[in-house]
Write a protein that binds this DNA or RNA. Structure first.
Lengths: 98, 98
DNA sequence: ATTATATGCAAGTCACGACTTGCATGTCAA
DNA sequence: TTGACATGCAAGTCGTGACTTGCATATAAT
């Protein structure tokens, strides 16, 4: 799976991006705890780890290893490709409501 | 299915949005022909119709009925919610590369 | 060295979405 | 009306992704 849109399709992965937006640079354990608490998601550590792998494979998350901990950082730049692909207009030329 | 991100997850639906970006206001038959020709997708009419239903349910496509024809229009405004949710920064504050 | 901590890998189950097939509905022209 | 055209509805198959379970690896502390 190396598709930006499929990566965004899973609610758990969007919650991970939300969590990293609130506080960047969290470890896997921190993300597990916070996802369970704040977002009400009851996922196993492995499930969250797999989601982070997907996010990293599409460039939405970068990681940094320090000792036995792995820190995760959000990178929103891939999202720009969405707007470049389907420009947001002011709805004048796209509908024919006359 | 009424989820913006799941709607964007299917390549066929993204191709439909591409096609409507190129030429807005196409009918189901026109979209079937053009998807097969230009995008190389061999999908049945019903499959494309179902994809259009999904796009309409999340507000990415609006429709207009005229007689026995149904015209489809793209509406990119729902995409704005993506950027509002995860703001695109200039990568200064999101990484800790010091 | 031993133990606890933090993460990684692999195989397996299972549900949901993508797609098809078949038939039905509605509109326009002869 | 009849027939052709454009679309809609419903049920069924099938593959893939989400999640789990179990074990393995690597780092830090005692």
């Amino acid at each position: 799976m190396n598709d930006l849109f499929e990566a965004l399709a899973a609610p758990a992965r969007r919650a991970l991006l939300d969590e990293l937006t609130q506080q960047n640079g969290q470890t896997l354990f921190e993300l597990c705890a916070r996802l369970t608490m704040k977002h009400g998601l009851g996922l196993s550590r492995q499930a969250i780890s797999q989601h982070l792998d997907v996010l990293e494979s599409v460039g939405l998350v970068t990681t940094e290893r320090k000792g036995r901990c792995k820190f995760h950082y959000i990178d929103t730049r891939p999202l720009m490709s969405i707007l470049e692909r389907w420009p947001i207009t002011n709805r004048e030329e796209q509908t024919s409501e006359d």
